[in-house]
């Protein structure tokens, strides 16, 4: 896999009479992490779903490298963590995480490593109903990571995760997908998280979705987590926040 840039070319999508996305063109660079922020209902999730191949644009096209999203999905090159953990209630945590590899037709050999990563050691044989909301969310994140995808789509995955774990995930995950050159798209409501985790923040305004601001983040020169108190970080966060206020 060389350059798996994601090209959204003039995409448009309506649901009934409501035009959710209109004439949108964006390129997401291969190996980069991009955060999509914007007010609720601005079409972030729809864009993610179209890149995942779950929805088809009414007009325009989406390419991931030379392939369509469906083609990437079919060879197991895509994975996604949803707002809802969407675990299968009859499977154990271990088995739910393994499902990500099974479905992508990849080896199921890193389950323990990922259980460790998301902090679910000791819960691997529990069923989702026996876990807290945050734990379920972590299991879902582990499931999205196990197939080592080329494209990782995260739709507000940390929503229900407690502050401490969230901090730990924020620290541990970005190195993981940088190392693998995973093209990551992150939808989040947290401005701090967007700046913290990504190489680029795109602020969208709603109905129909269009790009209001495209802010590069260049704080990730070393492997350490950026210092959130640093003036550079605060400046970027402020820029994003201003754009967001404009969008709303």
């Amino acid at each position: 896999m060389t350059r798996a840039d994601i090209h959204c070319d003039n995409i448009q999508k309506s649901f009934g009479a409501v035009e959710t996305v209109s004439q949108l063109s964006i390129v997401f660079k291969s190996g980069q992490t991009t955060a999509l922020v914007g007010p609720s209902g601005c079409g972030k999730s729809t864009i993610l779903r179209m890149i995942a191949g779950l929805e088809t644009p009414d007009t325009g096209s989406i390419r991931i490298g030379q392939e369509t999203p469906r083609q990437v999905a079919r060879r197991g090159g895509l994975s996604m963590a949803f707002q809802d953990p969407s675990l299968l209630p009859w499977r154990s945590v271990r088995s739910n995480i393994a499902l990500g590899a099974e479905l992508a037709r990849k080896p199921v050999d890193r389950v323990d490593e990922l259980i460790d990563l998301v902090g679910l050691v000791g819960f691997s044989d529990h069923r989702p109903a026996e876990l807290s909301g945050g734990m379920r969310q972590r299991a879902a994140i582990a499931r999205s990571l196990i197939s080592a995808p080329d494209v990782l789509l995260l739709d507000e995955p940390f929503g229900a995760v407690d502050a401490i774990t969230r901090r730990r995930l924020n620290r541990d995950l970005p190195p993981l997908w940088r190392e693998r050159k995973t093209t990551t798209l992150l939808v989040t409501h947290s401005v701090e998280e967007a700046v913290l985790l990504s190489d680029r923040v795109i602020v969208l305004c709603p109905r129909p979705a269009r790009v209001l601001a495209d802010i590069p983040v260049d704080l990730h020169h070393n492997r350490a987590l950026p210092e959130t108190n640093a003036p550079a970080f605060r400046d970027l966060a402020m820029r994003v926040l201003t754009a967001l206020e404009e969008a709303a």
Partner: peptide
Amino acid sequence: NWTDLMGVYGRGRVATLFT
């Protein structure tokens, strides 16, 4: 959400049926 999960991995009706 479950059918979407299957879709993200490009898996069709048969896999969705069984999984």
